[in-house]
């Protein structure tokens, strides 16, 4: 379904939803995040697949986040995510710290409809110590003792991301960002913003179909030109370093962030 604007998309994300979001180069729905903040979302459980940056920081700064589940929150070369760091220090968000492959495995378990997937590593870390939902079992296939961690399936209520192209049937072309495919397969509802909407059928194009999420996984699409800016959209546009630096600087304080948000270009839907 093609929506009229980003506020319609944001209205489909209820307070308290568990939302899966992609890493900084894979198609981060920044314009939709502004819309979500504008609708005053609260109590969100963010699951970064497997890390986040500006998007998580914005939502935290706006008071929309209750739980932050990720392997890292960083503004990359622009340094620390100021609102995330402040919220951690204040105890304002609940942390579910993890490691990249564990988040992906959790999502893949949901994709496969199984309750967990095993993963090597983690044993002896303080990550494991602080995740009572991660269980260590003895590998039943091994001859001798072989402890291994089981990661529970992560089924997001919502997957939210930005992609270069969709068609009117609701198929979405994602290029190389395959984690978006996993997110769409795992999530109950998938909401996507796109740069362009084509009149053709992406699934009928043999070159594009392998990197296309079929419409049956996509709940709703809204057009948002430059919807990932100032972050990069791989193959479409590069990151705007000056704008990211301005954000990083503003997000160091609550006042700076509030002023940045007030100056933001509003809900820029096509």
């Amino acid at each position: 379904m093609i929506l009229n604007d980003l506020s319609e998309l944001a209205a489909r994300i209820p307070d308290g939803a568990k939302i899966a979001i992609p890493p900084s180069r894979s198609g981060v729905a920044i314009a939709a995040t502004h819309a979500l903040i504008a609708r005053n979302a609260r109590g969100l459980h963010i699951v970064a697949i497997p890390t986040s940056g500006m998007q998580a920081d914005m939502l935290i700064g706006a008071g929309a986040v209750q739980v932050m589940e990720s392997a890292g929150v960083t503004l990359d070369e622009q340094g620390q995510a100021g609102r995330f760091v402040a919220a951690v220090k204040a105890g304002a968000i609940r942390l579910m710290d993890s490691t990249c492959p564990a988040l992906i495995s959790g999502l893949q378990a949901a994709e496969k409809g199984v309750p967990f997937l095993p993963m090597r590593g983690l044993i002896g870390s303080d990550l494991l110590k602080n995740r009572p939902d991660y269980k260590v079992v003895d590998n039943p296939m091994a001859d001798g003792p072989d402890p291994i961690v089981l990661l529970p399936a992560i089924q997001p209520d919502i997957a939210l991301f930005h992609a270069p192209l969709a068609d009117r049937r609701g198929n979405v072309w994602i290029g190389k960002a395959r984690e978006l495919m996993t997110m769409a397969h795992a999530a109950h509802t998938t909401l996507v913003t796109v740069e362009e909407i084509t009149e053709g059928d992406l699934m009928a194009d043999p070159l594009r179909a392998p990197a296309t999420i079929p419409a049956m996984y996509i709940t709703a699409i809204a057009r948002a030109r430059g919807g990932a800016m100032p972050l990069a959209l791989e193959g479409v546009y590069e990151a705007d370093s000056a704008a990211l630096a301005a954000y990083a600087n503003a997000a160091r304080t609550a006042e700076g962030f509030a002023a940045w948000l007030a100056d933001a270009p509003g809900i820029a839907a096509a």
């Binding site: 204040a90 993890s98 490691t99 590593g121 870390s125």
Partner: peptide, 27 residues
């Protein structure tokens, strides 16, 4: 330690997070 300084979770200094270290360091 890629997480922070002080008593977890409400630490005095917080860094970005562990990324892939808790798997790659083993393998």
């Amino acid at each position: 330690n890629l997480v922070g300084v002080g008593q977890y979770p409400q630490q005095d200094v917080r860094w970005s997070g562990s990324f892939g270290s808790a798997m790659l360091y083993y393998l």
